[in-house]
Design a protein around this nucleic acid. Structure first.
Lengths: 125, 125
DNA sequence: CTTTCAAGATTACATTTGTAATCCATACAG
DNA sequence: CTGTATGGATTACAAATGTAATCTTGAAAG
């Protein structure tokens, strides 16, 4: 298993964009983030630089701009962050965490059906 | 709803101890943490101080020691941290998050049964 | 009472993070 | 060709965090 770099709260925003559209230019990301954040373009460049330094992101020069792409795998990062959360908040106990979410969060009947389906498959496995 | 202070990774360790045994002395916590962390006692005192400053923890003087107790409510902190995680990693989408955990984490047959029970109750609700 | 030792208060310091502004080089406008 | 604007590189700076050492004070020991 490769080692995944630690990705901060703000950096996660960037990574999610890159996983969704690979590759992206800095300006594309500025566009996509402008409705949801108040970040100045320079801020986004800084975050990209840090991610490059952490080897979470790579780039290729295309004309005057860079085309950035994720180096860290989404599934790995999600797993790491999930486990970190689970450990921090629930001492690593999966079931209580799931129970809390199932009880407290809104779920549509379709969601519930889908989750039951997963549980059934799991039970049989 | 009251505003809950931001609790860092390390501080969570402290808060969990205080929620589990309320109140606790600093030395009790040092004891409890010594198997799991490499923190020096002074480090733990620092974390307690910061939590006091953040109003997440209070204390009462008892003889020469303080008896520390949580001011922030566990359920509130757990909820805040959960939502933060959900937003950061899953853009706030509960179902995909649950599906990922259900599929990837180990669950005993009893766990599965219990979770199904919760889902059934939810479905009926 | 006085000394001392340990709790807590204060201070320390590097790293990470959030948030950007300024500097520099070069691809395009003319 | 030359000037300029823009993308990226470098620098900036405060707050938060991890991790702890030193200072201060008062309770306990004698």
């Amino acid at each position: 298993m490769k080692k995944i770099p630690k990705i901060s709260e703000s950096e996660w925003q960037i990574m999610k964009l890159l996983w969704a559209k690979n590759p992206s230019t800095a300006n594309e990301m500025v566009e996509k983030l402008s409705p949801t954040t108040a970040w100045k373009p320079k801020t986004i460049k800084t975050l990209l630089n840090r991610l490059v330094k952490k080897k979470a992101v790579g780039y290729e020069k295309k004309g005057r701009e860079y085309h950035y792409y994720p180096l860290a795998e989404k599934s790995e990062c999600v797993k790491a962050e999930s486990h970190s959360f689970l450990r921090r908040v629930y001492n690593g106990a999966t079931k209580p965490m799931l129970a809390a979410f199932l009880e407290n969060e809104d779920l549509s009947p379709e969601d519930i059906k889908e989750l039951k389906r997963i549980l059934n498959k799991k039970g049989r496995g």
